[in-house]
Each structure stands twice: as structure tokens, then as C-alpha cells.
């Protein structure tokens, strides 16, 4: 998994953006780099990167989240100084909210992101999400996100998973899907995510991840 100074993570609602973003941020930090995570999710009040504040703190990762994230007030307020965070020279991971609605908040930062050179904007895809099971559906969501935020993707993250029920077969069955999305969009597969023991040998750009987003009874 290539590290760029700025990684913007978008995708369909529930595709696993947050879990991917958390893994990436921890990897960047473990490589000895300064890393900042920006939780730009104004759509989802539950299961978000702001849930990982304590873990990030213990690993030296700085977290910026909308004011009131994880409180009882579901009115987001964005006052994140992205330009100065980027100017600091560290690595930045932006976890964007789901679908085109979530990407609207990203649009506010489009001029800053466009002007920044060392970046990647990755679209997380998941074959097992109900409304993006077909490659064409996944591409449609991706285009809607781009239209909404005014930024273009540079790569795909195949994060196809059935949560706790994921097996190597689950991931293997998604490779053709990811390949088709790649062909339809002309975008490279930047990573195929799977937890240890479920990564198929033939997966392009294998990226072993941990499941950080999980249920309390697991």
C-alpha cells in the first residue's frame, strides 16, 4: 500500500472506508511518520474514525473531527484547517462520509486538495454491499462522489467483505468485480484489503488489514 502525503478516502456508504482509513493511518504512524487523520464524515453518527480517538492518541496520531462528532448533537460543524495541516509536512488521511451526500463536505476543501501535489484519492468498493454489487453500480456511486466534491479519484481499494463472516473465498469472489470496476474507470487497484488468513494469493496489491470497526459482543 503506497503512502502519499495526502490520502483522501471516499466510497459507498458502509463500504468500509473507516476501517481502511484507520489501518492506513496506523501503518503510516508505525513507519515513523507524523500522521493526521481527518474525520470528514458528516453523514453517519455511529461507527466513525472519531471513535478511535484514544487509540490514535496512544500511537501519536492527531485526529481532527467535526465539532460535536460522537456527541448527542447531530449537527456537524466543520472548522478543520486543512491547508495549515498539509503545510506542516506530515501525512494526512481524510475519511470522507458515504456516497455523494458525504462527499459534499469534501468539496469545501477541493481547491486546497487540487493544489496539493503528493496525493491520492481512493474509492473504497465492496462487492457485498447491497446497492453496489454490480461493477456498473459501484462506478455510478464513484462518479456521483466525484461530481459532488469536484475531485477525481486516482485509485480503487477493493475492500469487499462480509464483516465477521469473511473468508478467503469471500475475498477471492470479489477479484473479478474489482477488476471490472478498474477496467470501467481506468483506475488502478491501489489495494485489495483482507484480514490475515483470508488474502487470496492472486489478489492484486494485497493489503493485510485488521478489523478495528466491530460490534461490542464480538
Amino acid at each position: 500500500m503506497e503512502h502519499r502525503k495526502l490520502t483522501v478516502v471516499t466510497g459507498h456508504y458502509g463500504s468500509g472506508k473507516t476501517n481502511f482509513s484507520v489501518n492506513l493511518a496506523l501503518d503510516i504512524a508505525d513507519a515513523g511518520n507524523k500522521c493526521t487523520v481527518i474525520d470528514l464524515d458528516i453523514v453517519n453518527p455511529y461507527f466513525r474514525t472519531a471513535d478511535f480517538g484514544d487509540m490514535f492518541k496512544s500511537r501519536g496520531i492527531e485526529l481532527f473531527a467535526p465539532v460535536y462528532a460522537n456527541t448527542n448533537l447531530d449537527i456537524p460543524s466543520l472548522n478543520i484547517p486543512l491547508e495549515s495541516i498539509l503545510a506542516d509536512g506530515g501525512y494526512v488521511v481524510i475519511d470522507v462520509g458515504g456516497d455523494d451526500e458525504g462527499a459534499k463536505a469534501l468539496g469545501r476543501y477541493a481547491p486546497v486538495i487540487t493544489a496539493f501535489a503528493d496525493k491520492q484519492m481512493l474509492c473504497v468498493i465492496n462487492k457485498y454491499r447491497y446497492l453496489t454489487k454490480e461493477p456498473a453500480e459501484a462506478v455510478k456511486v464513484m462518479r456521483e462522489i466525484e461530481f459532488s466534491c469536484g475531485l477525481a479519484h486516482t485509485g480503487l481499494v477493493n475492500n469487499s467483505s462480509l464483516g465477521a463472516e469473511t473468508t478467503a473465498g469471500t475475498v477471492r469472489a470479489s477479484l473479478d468485480f474489482a477488476d471490472e470496476v478498474s477496467k470501467l474507470t481506468g483506475l488502478p487497484i491501489a489495494a485489495t484489503c483482507a484480514v490475515a488468513g483470508t488474502m487470496p494469493e492472486e489478489a492484486p496489491e494485497p493489503y493485510i488489514v485488521k478489523r478495528y470497526v466491530h460490534n461490542l459482543w464480538e
Binding site: G14, Y130, K133
Partner: peptide, 14 residues
């Protein structure tokens, strides 16, 4: 085939 769904989405689809 199984899909990954949010509880709310499953209620709606059902």
C-alpha cells in the same frame, strides 16, 4: 447470496 447491510437498510429492503 449474502450481502453486507446496515440494520436500517435491511428493514427497508425487507
Amino acid at each position: 447470496e449474502k450481502s453486507l447491510m446496515k440494520g436500517n437498510e435491511a428493514l427497508a429492503e425487507a
